[in-house]
Design a protein around this nucleic acid. Structure first.
Length: 718
RNA sequence: GGGCACAUGGUGUAGUGGAAGCAUGGUGGCCUUCGGAGCCAUAGACCGGGGUUCGAAUCCCUGUGUGCCCA
């Protein structure tokens, strides 16, 4: 409709001797002006828009398809902006909207609604969650899981076959000392009396304390500290603080000397050197300050953990006394990485697998499952990282110092990279200077990035994937980006082009601090359970208000269980995807768990209402859509409905599920308004009644399908 | 030192160069209900300074604040 009117106006303007073309803009619903489209007169007459607008309004009002044309002036800026508002003739509108309502109803009521087939036959991998398997998945991790899972579901709706991968970090330092704690408890016959991940979270926190206490204390060994290296006593704290304090004043003295020199020096070169030195001293001071903060931190941690988990603390303390934990951790990690001793491998894998079982259980309740858990050590054992390192070492971008290899992102490389991949500068995530990347240590062992690179290539090859999305925190943006030119340099142009970093910002919990070190966090299990309980309270309260009885029979309980699960998923999943991923979330549990303030349950409620209508009134007989052509609520709804495919595509290409949640929420909202203003039962005209019912059916189906797409089941009742 | 984000009513957010939306809270209404977890009305906002443009919340430069990454 818009196109044909636009063509008509443009050709008329040409007859009037105006060669510039205009673009019609829709008039926003919130404006109370009665009209359909407008264009801005300034585009064709920037100098005298008011006069020209008045002249044109008469000319254009005479056109067949236009029933009215009038100008509106916005005078708030430097220059007035003149809008020419157009009202289309009723016949044209009636024809157009009748068709639109009918086709939209048909489209949305289709059982296959929600699917666009852009990527049929293609394969996508979404790697998400990948939390360290040493403590429970907390609410901070959960944003990753839910973003990743929702995005995977959206990719499926565009036709992709999607595989969900979890990268298991099973060889890091933290795993090293945790595994030792695990082994010691196992030898003593201790069995977890709580869910394994929570139990291991405590083991991790305590072993982390011991490890760091030893690390800190051995550094100050000659200073007559308490014999027990796994305990920082208050005397230790005092002594160490004193030492660090004197270090600090020493550096400050040195800084003053340099500052004096700077004041006296005029030579540019030595001035530059002095300033650099000064900056270095400043960094040294920050280091010392951080060190002393760390000592205090572990001193506090020690009393906190021994008070909260006295039994485990003492058991582990007794065991750890007999060993050198720093040494043993390094030893265990080395042996595991080598992958030759069955006993060590079994120990590490057993602990990881138990934790992953806990994670599976947790995430399953949120509707999240994985196709594959990929262990980092498997990548190590494949030796691909070493091969890649050798291949990269030969390139001109690599700077080799002994056995250490450094990769430099030179302008020449980046130009070739963009040219061969067909990228513009604005496509790059990092547009400024890219710092060098260390690929291997001075002893020749490859660094983490090489494993990451190897793993990326394995992902593409194993699944023959067309595209890979890594759901990883935004703080990793640089590291993720640095992989791309490496892939390019190795000749994997397609992989470099189709590896995407799906970034997201952190979650803060209002009023609670989360700390793995202290084994203090709101776990995803707690979040789910608290939501569930609140959902039940809300449901019981509303039943009471309506004078209904709570469930009596088994069937009724099962039915209620289904509803509560849907509501719980709505209250937990919705808030974590409803704002764009690059916004930090300050999650306020009281707010999110309050049904009235959370958009998720609102959508469920809208769906249940639509369902209620369809249960009461039969969909039967001929529908007359033409009666609804000037029904404001209907037109708003239908216009919104028609934007679904565009919205899904944008949500996928911009890696932002909130585009879709926004669409769903708006649809529910528009439906509620329609529902209030258009009583269906009391509708006298049979054709109109059926047409409205069709609209209700379309809404119900669209809500159900799109909620499914974001991982939330809907129910008939709520 | 370099880089990546973010900044919009009290609070949380949408916004694709074209008339600043939504939610929540505030205030005032609406239940002889196709399920009130709802609807209606109302007040309330683009971090500062430049630039590009007929027109900037949006693009460019710059400053400030917040979070983070690299060295």
């Amino acid at each position: 409709m818009k196109d044909s009117v636009q063509r008509e106006i443009n050709s008329h303007l040409e007859q009037l001797g105006i060669s510039k073309k205009i673009n019609l803009l829709p008039i926003a619903d919130h404006l109370d002006f009665e009209g359909d489209f407008c264009f801005i007169v300034n585009t064709i007459a920037p100098k005298n828009p008011k006069q020209e607008g008045e002249r044109l309004s008469k000319e254009i009002a005479a056109l067949n398809s236009i029933s009215d044309a009038s100008i509106a002036v916005n005078d708030t800026g430097k220059n007035p902006i003149v809008y020419l508002n157009l009202k289309l003739s009723d016949e044209i509108k009636k024809q157009h909207y009748t068709d639109l309502i009918k086709s939209t109803c048909d489209n949305l009521a289709d059982p296959k609604f929600g699917e666009v087939e852009d990527n049929v036959g293609k394969i996508a991998i979404v790697e998400h969650t990948s939390a360290n398997p040493i403590s429970p998945i907390h609410v901070g991790n959960l944003r990753n899981s839910i973003q990743g899972d929702t995005f995977a579901r959206m990719l499926e709706k565009t036709g992709y076959r999607v595989f969900r991968h979890y990268l298991v970090n099973d060889g890091g330092l933290q795993i090293g000392f945790t595994v030792i704690g695990y082994q010691m408890l196992k030898e003593k016959g201790v069995k977890p009396a709580i869910k394994f991940d929570r139990w291991l979270g405590q083991v991790y926190a305590i072993m982390n304390l011991f490890y760091n206490s030893q690390r800190i204390k051995t550094k100050f060994m000659d200073k007559e500290l308490d014999r027990d290296v796994y305990r920082i006593s208050s005397e230790d704290l005092e002594k160490i603080t004193e030492i660090l304090e004197s270090q600090r004043s020493q550096i400050e003295l040195e800084m003053k000397v340099i500052e004096k020199q700077i004041a006296q020096t005029k030579d540019k070169k030595s001035l530059k050197n002095l300033k650099r030195e000064l900056a270095k001293k400043k960094r040294d001071i920050t280091k010392v300050v951080e060190e002393s903060k760390e000592v205090v931190k572990y001193y506090d941690t020690s009393s906190d953990l021994s008070n909260r988990f006295p039994d485990m603390y003492h058991l582990l303390h007794e065991s750890v006394k007999n060993i050198d934990l720093l040494q043993m951790t390094a030893d265990y990690l080395y042996r595991y990485e080598k992958g030759e001793e069955k006993e060590i491998i079994d120990l590490f894998r057993e602990m990881a697998n138990w934790t992953l079982e806990s994670f599976k259980w947790t995430l399953r309740r949120y509707g999240i499952v994985f196709d594959s858990f990929d262990f980092e050590t498997d990548v190590t054992w494949s030796n691909l990282a070493e091969e890649l390192l050798v291949r990269l070492s030969d390139t001109e971008e690599c700077l080799i110092e002994g056995k250490a290899v450094r990769f430099r992102y030179e302008p020449k490389l980046m130009k070739a990279f963009m040219r061969d991949l067909g990228l513009k500068k604005s496509d790059l995530k990092i547009r400024g200077n890219i710092p060098d990347l260390q690929l291997s240590r001075s002893d020749g062992t490859s660094l983490y990035v090489m494993k990451d690179l190897a793993y990326t290539i394995q992902k593409f090859e194993r699944r023959k994937a067309d595209v890979v999305y890594n759901v990883v925190g935004e703080e990793q943006a640089l590291a993720q980006f640095q992989l791309l030119p490496l892939l390019y340099k190795l000749g994997y142009h397609d992989y470099a082009k189709n590896l995407h970093h799906y970034g997201y910002e952190k979650v803060n919990l209002v009023g609670r601090t989360m700390s793995g070190r202290l084994a203090r966090y709101v776990t995803s299990d707690q979040f789910y359970e608290e939501s569930y309980v609140r959902a039940r309270m809300a449901k019981r309260a509303s039943e009471e208000a309506r004078g209904e009885s709570s469930p009596q029979s088994d069937e009724e309980y099962l039915e209620e269980e289904k509803i509560l699960r849907a509501v719980t998923l709505a209250t937990t999943r919705f808030p974590l995807i409803e704002s764009s991923p690059n916004k930090r979330i300050h999650l306020d549990l009281d707010r999110e768990l309050d049904m009235k303030r959370n958009s998720g349950p609102f959508v469920l409620y809208a769906h249940a209402r639509a369902n209620g209508i369809l249960k009461k009134i039969q969909l039967k007989g001929k529908a007359d859509f033409s009666i609804l052509w000037n029904n404001q609520e209907v037109i708003q709804m239908v216009r919104h409905m028609a934007t679904y495919e565009e919205t899904l595509r944008r949500a996928v290409s911009e890696m932002d599920p909130s585009k879709l949640t926004d669409w769903i929420f708006k649809l529910a909202q528009l439906f509620m308004k329609f529902y209030e203003k258009n009583p269906i039962m009391k509708e006298n005209d049979k054709g109109a009644k059926q047409a409205k019912l069709h609209l209700v059916l379309a809404t119900k189906n669209a809500l159900a399908k799109t909620m499914e797409t974001i991982g939330i089941p809907v129910t008939e009742r709520i």
